[in-house]
Design a binder for these strands. Sequence first.
DNA 1: AAGTCTGTTCAGTTATTTCCGAACAAACTT
DNA 2: AAGTTTGTTCGGAAATAACTGAACAGACTT
Lengths: 156, 156
Amino acid sequence: MDQEADIKTVRTAFIERMGMVAHHEGMPRMGGQILAMLVFDGTAISFGDLARRLQVSRATISTSVRFLEERGLIRRLNRTGERQDYFQLAEDAYATMLRHARTGTLRAISEISQTAAELPAGSDAIRRRLDEYAGFYEAIDASILDAISRFETADT
Amino acid sequence: MDQEADIKTVRTAFIERMGMVAHHEGMPRMGGQILAMLVFDGTAISFGDLARRLQVSRATISTSVRFLEERGLIRRLNRTGERQDYFQLAEDAYATMLRHARTGTLRAISEISQTAAELPAGSDAIRRRLDEYAGFYEAIDASILDAISRFETADT
DNA sequence: AAGTCTGTTCAGTTATTTCCGAACAAACTT
DNA sequence: AAGTTTGTTCGGAAATAACTGAACAGACTT
């Protein structure tokens, strides 16, 4: 039995699926695929291999890894004696994803409170509804913080 | 002083901002704008008013409200003696948003465990990494559940 | 019945996102 | 020095998403 071939098939399917999940979450599909690949393999993967195995141009890899680096989800290794760059999951990638999710809700909260601040005196009913809306995002924020600690304890 | 005009300006800005927030969260911009309008006004708004005040075609309103209805975020009122449909926020709109967020993470978990199931016997290292990845989504799921109860208590 | 108003659907346009090829610079190899 | 290899950038192409106008059906009004 050719286990290697089986694993390769499963990996391809996994990468494809996670690309869709990422896309569905409003993240670039390619970024999700790269992350999936790094999760699956565990090892660091070279720039060239990423392009080859995902069958996309090096230009696409370049912009995608830059995006993932800026988000703090992957790390670039510059192995001495190696021409190519290598990439691996950041140690705290999962916690970082959660922290990034927070920024979205914090932005929403900020927009809402800014709106409330711009309202003329009175407008109490509107203010109350905006507060309720902000409360929704605050509930999300609180639980993301929960998740961070929850996950960090489950991590090690 | 013309408070009405002030409020109108603030409302327009709010709708615009929330449209961007929605879009940033991977949701249609127009859906976010409609929700924002309903939150701001509090009252039910007619189909025609939505098109007029958002300055989009009725076709766009039609597809947008269908989307929001299917998600359970708004309710359509058919006032007797009124030709137009009216829309208002669903009572449990916020909790519904959270429940929907869950489906995304549950899907991710499902995809991951399906991948694990497809792996040939052995492959323990891969399996371990997939489990860790699934654990990430499970942490999110757990905290969304937290948020639902947290928000529901804060709601009333 | 003819005319108006309302909401839906669909084909087609417009806008946005995503990806690629080519040109380039830096570092290395011969 | 000339030639490779590597990663980045940018203009533009290809794919996707968002919106519109027009045709339509149902319900009401005259």
